[in-house]
């Protein structure tokens, strides 16, 4: 009898925990979007730099397993971005205003941001997420929802090139630091790329040299 009671109690506790997790993960529309935009804009404008680690998960329909890459991320106002991939391959992407430098084990090359549409698109999108510009972009239809932990922005591309690449882009913003936690890119090809930012350090001084590649 005791065993039955303890089993029932265990199941009840497990169900309660699961339903709490489910509630925490389900999203409801943000009631006052203008207020959220003001909050996010104010918070973003106070951010001068972000340093973090990141994990990139790439799901390809052809592959059963995801390709998981890791590296470090540095953002500095205005328009400076450095993403350094360390696993499973070395790759460096640096954007210093309109100059992009990419490099791997074999070579490095610098190009104007306008001459490489793909890199420009991805880096601009990432920058716009961190600066808050994405909220006012005419390139997307935007819906905003929230749960206890995060705000979720869903962007549906309107612009032609973006539309040819992405079905939608989901951005999760932490309610603790009001900075981007996760960016999920759903491609028109059916593949997905997810960028998750960990160990964020906000407004630590970042030397400009970080964005100069010699």
């Amino acid at each position: 009898m005791r065993q039955i009671i303890s089993s029932v109690m265990f199941i009840c506790i497990a169900l309660c925990t699961m339903s709490r997790v489910a509630v925490a993960q389900s999203y409801t529309p943000v009631k006052n979007t203008e207020e959220f935009k003001r909050l996010f804009a104010a918070r973003s404008s106070a951010i001068t730099s972000i340093q973090s680690d990141f994990t990139q998960q790439k799901s390809i329909s052809m592959l059963e397993n995801k390709i998981i890459s890791e590296g470090t991320f540095t953002y500095k106002r205005e328009n400076r971005l450095r993403m350094e991939y360390s696993k499973p391959y070395k790759f460096l992407f640096v954007m210093d205003h309109d100059q992009i430098t990419i490099g791997n084990n074999q070579q490095k090359s610098s190009v104007s941001a306008n001459s490489n549409k793909m890199y420009k698109l991805i880096s601009q999108l990432t920058l716009d997420c961190f600066t808050g510009n994405v909220l006012n972009s005419k390139d997307f239809d935007l819906t905003i929802s929230e749960n206890a932990r995060v705000y979720k922005l869903v962007l549906i591309p309107r612009q032609k090139l973006l539309k040819s690449l992405f079905e939608r882009i989901d951005i999760l913003i932490s309610k603790i630091d009001v900075a981007v936690d996760k960016i999920e890119l759903a491609e028109t090809s059916g593949d997905h790329t997810t960028l998750i930012f960990h160990n964020k350090v906000i407004n630590n001084p970042v030397n400009d040299e970080v964005f100069k590649i010699h």
């Binding site: 790439k58 390809i60 592959l63 793909m118 991805i122 491609e187 960028l195």
Partner: peptide, 23 residues
Amino acid sequence: LLLVKRLNDSTIRLVMNSEMGPK
């Protein structure tokens, strides 16, 4: 990044991705 999958004796599938994600 280039993924190469062998489909059969005479066919392969190539998928090229930008390191930063998109196909």
